[in-house]
């Protein structure tokens, strides 16, 4: 695990400020997206935008533990699934309020992350990756066998979630901005966590667990806490995705999806938060654009990823920083 993240810096003050700026620029661009799309007269693009924002939330949450805690979770799609099914299951019982659905998603995710994290964190490196994958698959097959909600085929939602008793989220633009608001809020929270006492301990454990034990920290409790926080945040992305697609299915939580989340984080630059958001945007845009051009888009996407990792191991963030340095 450590090897994968050793190149990520611990976050010096100037770079940190730069990342907040980068995130702010991204958020402004996101906010301008719907009006521009209106001019282009293609409302479907707004839905694609919402999907990208939801995945950005998940990638951001994963970066918190992957980038800052050196915990490569290969089962994070499970939390997306908990979020989507929280919407489906609660709405089938007449609970349509999005805040309550988010609460439900967070509670179930917290329990799942606490139990599976406590077991997974007994291992390190590739074993940690494998065991989180195994737990993710267990969740996947649980929902496959949940025939009341369509099993393998999934389950169409009769309506989107309500917000404070209103149906405003039925409007694609409102849903887009609601998703953006959640993303910005979670970015702010992650940014504060990373710079806090807790964040410093978490990063320290990534850098050198032996040193941390020798100055009085038991790594487990901090890693587990971060793992739970990350899982809960990811489930919020699931709630929003269910609303975007108006459909839930176990496909949201397959291990491919977990891999895609890791790709987004790596593509953006691990341990940078803003990079994870950029990585999600880049990965999904590439998927859309390459998908339009050729059936074999995955091949080209793979090639792009290889080149990126070879020439800019710190992802898009590394590229941007290089360009910024070249200019100044």
């Amino acid at each position: 695990m450590t090897d994968m993240t050793a190149s990520a810096p611990a976050g010096r003050a100037p770079a940190l400020a730069g990342r907040v700026k980068a995130a702010a620029i991204l958020f402004v661009l996101f906010a301008l997206f719907p009006p521009v799309v209106m001019l282009a007269d293609d409302p479907f693009l707004v839905l694609i935008g919402t999907r990208i924002l939801a995945y950005a939330i998940a990638a951001l949450a994963l970066d918190l533990i992957l980038g800052y805690g050196a915990m490569v979770s290969f089962g994070h799609a499970a939390y997306l699934g908990f979020g989507t099914y929280a919407v489906a299951i609660l709405s089938s019982y007449g609970i349509n309020d999005i805040v309550l659905q988010m609460l439900g998603a967070v509670v179930i995710s917290a329990v799942f992350a606490l139990v599976t994290g406590a077991i997974s964190l007994r291992t390190r490196g590739v074993y940690f990756i494998m065991i989180t994958l195994a737990f993710g698959q267990m969740a996947f097959f649980f929902f496959i066998s949940l025939s009341a909600y369509g099993g393998d085929d999934g389950y169409g939602l009769s309506q989107r979630s309500t917000l404070f008793g209103t149906q405003v989220l039925e409007n694609d633009f409102v849903l887009f901005y609601a998703t953006l608001a959640v993303l910005i809020g979670l970015f702010a929270i992650c940014h504060r966590i990373v710079g806090s006492r807790f964040g410093r301990v978490l990063t320290g454990i990534r850098e050198n667990p032996t040193r941390m034990e020798a100055i009085g920290y038991a790594p487990f409790r901090y890693q587990l806490t971060a793992f739970v926080i990350s899982g809960c945040m990811t489930s919020l992305a699931g709630v929003l995705l269910a609303n975007q697609a108006e459909f839930v299915s176990p496909a949201f939580m397959s291990w491919h999806r977990s891999g895609e989340l890791i790709v987004m984080v790596v593509l953006g630059g691990i341990g940078t938060l803003a990079g994870a958001i950029g990585g999600a945007v880049a990965a999904l845009l590439l998927e859309e654009v390459l998908g339009m051009m050729t059936e074999h888009w995955r091949l080209w996407f793979g090639l792009f990823l290889v080149l990126m990792v070879l020439f800019s191991p710190r992802g898009i963030t590394g590229l941007v920083e290089k360009i910024g340095k070249g200019r100044s």
Partner: peptide, 23 residues
């Protein structure tokens, strides 16, 4: 400084503080 401040932090107050800037 951060290396040493982290050692101080272990003995002073909780490390389960998520918001205030430690720096």
């Amino acid at each position: 400084l951060e290396n040493v401040a982290l050692a101080v932090q272990a003995r002073h107050g909780s490390s389960f503080r998520f918001w205030a800037r430690v720096a």
